[in-house]
Amino acid sequence: MNEDSKKFILELAKDNKRNYGSRGLDDFRNLIIEANVSKNAEGSAKVMLGKTIVIAGVKMEIGTPYPDTPNQGNLICSGEMNAIADNEFEPGRPGEDAIELSRVVDRGIRESGAIDFEKLCIAPGEKAWNVLVDFYILNNDGNLIDACGIAAIAALKLARMPKVDEEGKIIHGEWSEQKVPFIKTPIPTTFFKIGDKIFADADKEEQEASEARLTVTTSSNEINALQKGGSGAFTIKEIEECLAKSFKIKDKIVDVISKIK
């Protein structure tokens, strides 16, 4: 990104304005969620957040529970910074940014108790369902954590349990009436510090003008996950500001998610 664009974004930030249109600092870009974009998945969704495009899908597998949680199923989230999404992303194995992204999304879902893991236990200590949520970034225009988190939640909300045969093996391509036990809607909201202002839903250019970000994942009245990123820092007052905004933004996003089916 060139220095002039960065200066421009910083100048505008001083007056609480942002680069494009009349979007306020707390406003999200237009959010469109498309349900069931891939029919072989247990559940899937496409999220378009401005020009950022992400698809997420859920697959269920039967595995062995962890020894310390013998009566629970498990969640595995993974995502990549797919090279199709951005000229600057490199093809190949996920790098550190992609791993951070997956782990932040994973933590929010896991810690909020969005999935009733005990319902996913088939035989304590022996067999339980694993929930595998994978997301693919198709176009990067910033704020990937929020877009991926929303896509993952939408896909989970839509996910059906696969049918199993008499021996307890999955019948691929057939689903039962039962849904994946999804009971809460945790939403990650990421705030970018630009100059001394806090921006919600930064696009790619704004993100590059920012030195620090804070992701706050909330569900109902709780904070379930935090992640501070970037080399900059936040004051406690700024953290309070992010927390307050995060609940408001979450409610709006939950509204959009509640409409999909």
Partner: peptide, 20 residues
Amino acid sequence: IKCYYDLVSFSVTDRARPGP
């Protein structure tokens, strides 16, 4: 020319491992 074919993990009924 660099060409990358990628099967999305949930594009098939029996999940494919993500990545090449």
